[in-house]
Design a protein around this nucleic acid. Structure first.
Lengths: 204, 204
DNA sequence: TAGATTTTTAACCACCCGGTTAAATTTTTT
DNA sequence: AAAAAATTTAACCGGGTGGTTAAAAATCTA
């Protein structure tokens, strides 16, 4: 009983994630999720009473994944540049294994942001800690002084944006050459690190 | 006859753009577009036979707007840094007047990229020209040598991404203070310029 | 004014979608 | 074997959606 139930629930969640991530809340169909899970619509509603409840379950899992606990990296007791590099590497690892998350989150965010707000409030995520760490690095003279909010957004932008507009890059720059794009994305962590460090490093 | 027809068609296109940009193809309703235009559904279908045709009309207009002819800026005969600055300023002016375009384009892009491909092919937009200009600037020793594709994507990312995730920034960083966020976005062009130039400038 | 065009009204259709139901069947648990 | 739980089947419902229709009314053109 436990065995079977867990198995089916997992199949449903995997199928729902697949469909929701690619088609969004509006574009997803309960029938398609049932098919993808290899069950029927009645059983799908037997496990999750409504589309909304199922979507919320998926969305919170995805957000947990996309906003992971990188606080431990940021709060390590090494120099700022090292921590920044580790953060970019860790974030890219997540992006490369889940390349469709940025598009999905941006889509649902602009449809109805309230879901994200609730989750942020629930998990108590707060960027102030990161901003303060950056300011302290500036105080110590490790990097140039600038608005830490801009610095954070610059880094995140360069990491995430290419995944959000992946189809454009694929067509416009890589002419549908998947290998070329994968190679390009794979070298981006090092490129971004160098780009940022060259910008914020103190020349002497 | 001309007068009236043009007026109504314009009203429809404006209403459709408003609804489509905010709700996307899947979320938009023909009735809502008709209401927004101040007409009825029958007349809406009298002008545009189907939702798809209407969407295509809007989408191509939006793309023309979001991928504007900045070739003239890039091909100006000044130093690279000046041209880069002008490009960022021009692109931000577009973004600030149409802040919802990034989210809309990313949404529809991940739903069905074929529409964009057709338009790109139609207008013959090609990034190779920009990439070559950047390489020439590197040859002339104006900026550091790096993969020009990464440089282009870095700049575009930092410009566009904040608009795509606007609701997150609004909630997480600016605590619903619209003025603060507007001020922040307004200062970003200068921040990005300095950030990029500090990174790619040749130290001497 | 007469004819052509635009717009409204209001009902209608076929289809799809989320969700429900009830009974039968299978599987698991005890 | 008996009870409980999981799953299937298949039909159904209400509401919404894109789209159509036909006739009347309003507007514009010549």
């Amino acid at each position: 009983m436990e065995q079977k139930k867990d198995n089916t629930e997992e199949k449903i969640l995997n199928a729902a994630r697949e469909v929701f991530v690619h088609k969004g809340m509006d574009g997803a169909r309960m029938q398609e999720i049932a098919n993808e899970a290899g069950i029927n619509k009645a059983l799908l509603h037997y496990y999750f009473r409504s589309k909304e409840k199922l979507f919320d379950a998926i969305f919170s899992k995805v957000i947990e994944f996309a906003f992971p606990g990188f606080a431990n990296i940021i709060s390590e007791e090494t120099d700022f540049v090292t921590r920044l590099g580790k953060f970019i590497d860790a974030y890219f690892e997540m992006l490369l294994t889940h390349p469709f998350l940025p598009g999905f989150i941006i889509k649902e965010l602009n449809r109805d942001p309230s879901g994200l707000f609730k989750l942020i409030a629930k998990y108590g995520f707060n960027p102030d800690f990161v901003l303060k760490e950056i300011e302290q690095a500036m105080d110590r003279g490790e990097i140039k002084r600038m608005d830490p909010r801009h610095l954070v957004i610059n880094v995140i932008s360069m990491c995430v944006f290419p995944f959000a507009v992946r189809p454009i890059l694929n067509y416009l720059i890589f002419k549908d050459d998947q290998m070329a794009m994968s190679a390009f994305l794979g070298e981006r962590p090092e490129v971004i690190k160098k780009f940022v460090i060259d910008s914020v490093a103190i020349k002497q």
